[in-house]
């Protein structure tokens, strides 16, 4: 039994158990949304991280049609609002789940492992040193390029491109590590692994995602610098 069917034991229209879906299984009326049920459940999916993008697209389109406020123009205001609520959650859920990184961040946030902004995240000192040095070399390249002559500028653009390729390669490494962790997470769900196992996997994914955000910033820095390149 899903969380939402527990939260709303009776359909507002017919009084029967609504079944936990978007619409009552008895009378077919749209149901209020339990915010605790989450984005995966919204699409009728388990909380797995390897997700078939085409399947998600199909589910999204089908639900867009069914939940669209146009279908409720003649309904009571209450039902219209339910359709608006569900349609807006549908769009948020689709946007978050479509991207593997935001999908994983969402899963970790949902389980309290990752919090935006105010909760401090730990980063290993070697990583900080490395990121700091990479940022410094990027900054030096930038500064040299601002003051340099045209010929020098070309050479610096090349070194920037090399730096960009290095960061991109690092990003690739992190992403394949993340993909590996996704596989382990899904396998853990399949064998109904215990809390400890899952907590350990989530902590590791959190660590990978932290590293990833540093490297992504570096890649973005190089891309921006090359984009702003004078006389290219």
């Amino acid at each position: 039994m899903s969380v939402s069917s527990l939260a709303f034991p009776a359909c507002w229209n017919c009084g029967a158990p609504p079944g936990g879906g978007h619409f009552c299984v008895g009378c077919g009326k749209i149901q209020p949304l339990d915010p605790a049920s989450g984005y995966f459940a919204f699409f009728g999916l388990p909380e797995k991280l390897n997700l078939d993008a085409a399947d998600l697209d199909r589910r999204y389109l089908a639900l867009s049609w069914k939940l669209h406020p146009d279908n409720f123009v003649r309904a009571e205001e209450f039902e219209r609002n339910l359709s608006l609520d569900r349609s807006s959650v549908l769009n948020d859920a689709y946007r978050v789940l479509r991207d593997p990184v935001s999908r994983a961040e969402y899963l970790l946030a949902r389980h309290g492992v990752r919090k935006e902004g105010q909760t401090k995240q730990q980063a290993p000192p070697e990583l900080l040193e490395e990121v700091f040095e990479l940022n410094e070399s990027l900054e030096e390249l930038r500064a040299a390029r601002r003051s340099g002559d045209a010929a020098e500028s070309v050479a610096l653009a090349r070194s920037l491109e090399t730096a960009g390729r290095n960061f991109q390669a690092k990003l690739g490494e992190v992403d394949s590590e993340l993909a590996g962790a996704f596989g382990e997470w899904d396998a853990a769900l399949d064998r109904s692994a215990g809390e400890d196992d899952r907590a350990r996997l989530m902590a590791r994914m959190n660590e990978i995602l932290n590293r990833r955000s540093y490297i992504r910033n570096l890649v973005a820095g190089v891309t921006q610098e090359l984009g702003e390149a004078p006389g290219e």
Binding site: G117, Q122, A123, P125, L128, E129, R211
Partner: peptide
């Protein structure tokens, strides 16, 4: 002291 905020990528 070297510290970082991984969620925003600051060092």
């Amino acid at each position: 002291g070297m510290v970082g905020a991984p969620e925003c990528g600051d060092v």
